[in-house]
Write a protein that binds this DNA or RNA. Structure first.
Lengths: 156, 156
DNA sequence: AGAATACCTGAGTTATTTACTTGGTTATTA
DNA sequence: TAATAACCAAGTAAATAACTCAGGTATTCT
């Protein structure tokens, strides 16, 4: 399992989308502001998420992204594998050719761990995360901050 | 949890050591050959493993390394944390300051996963790995290859 | 004593990957 | 037609990982 900022950003952005989408489609610049992620970087990530069918897009003013499935149907594992190439921690990426075309001494250990992580993340959906109190609290705070910032711009 | 080649090398080398140490202390150049890891890189890693008490060293001819504890006492988690700095996948390294000094929207998710991985690797010891049939098979093959290579050098 | 072995150390270098930017184009709506 | 926002590809900069180099020190064997 390759767990980097890229995957974390993708999950964070998807969760933001899931929380906000009751108000219709959500544009990336809003997500970028709330989650403090570079807009163009988000665009890259959402290109991949779209190709995987996890999100749908509408162009033009008032447009943005919405979930392609219900929050309950979108697992964290699916998001990560949509933006990261592989979901494996073995050196050979699961090909079993880590040492002279056969498995290295610890291949199975990493392979087993990869599966554990994969299963864990498959079992958690965006729907599960939304229900968590801590997520609600943080989302509310981020909302307030964003609205306040916009207020300041309009009437300083 | 930061899982990189460094940690994998360390675990592989430690497992090699655990398998071979019945014959007394094992020198790094042998491990380097069997596991195809650069000798100087191994020296770095074993410097850290020694400071953590996981291995003991004897200098001079016939010297090498031996385990500082029984294989059953050495967990995989201990090896990885001896060579990698942190064992956490959150962006803030567990400091909970990922966004403006508070937790980001997905902090708890990564934090929980980190704990899962940590627990999993704490529960596996070198002793457990040695018992596995696949490990025995691969170790035997690596032994043969090494001995054959030495034969070839002595009598080509 | 001297050569060989093998650990020990730190500073440097190279390669890879990640994160991010730039500079556009296309579709849609008001 | 002007503004908005998705779409896209290529490039770059920073970080980190992996590895090398050039010494050293302790120990043993001859």
């Amino acid at each position: 399992m390759k767990l980097t900022t890229k995957g974390r950003y993708a999950v964070t952005a998807m969760l933001d989308l899931a929380i906000q989408q009751s108000a219709g489609s959500v544009c990336l610049s809003d997500i970028a502001e709330r989650q403090e992620i570079s807009l163009s970087y988000l665009e890259q990530l959402f290109g991949r998420l779209r190709k995987s069918g996890l999100v749908e897009s509408t162009r033009g003013p008032g447009g943005g992204y919405s979930l392609g499935q219900t929050p309950e149907q979108v697992s964290i594992a699916a998001i990560i594998s949509a933006v990261d190439e592989d979901v494996d921690i073995t050196r050979c990426s699961g090909n079993e050719n880590c040492q002279q075309n056969t498995r290295c001494l610890t291949h199975d250990l990493w392979s087993d761990l990869s599966n554990k992580i994969q299963n864990y993340l498959e079992d958690i959906s965006l729907g599960d995360l939304i229900k968590r109190q801590s997520v609600q609290t943080i989302a509310a705070r981020q909302d307030t901050v964003l609205l306040k910032r916009r207020d300041d711009i309009v009437a300083p």
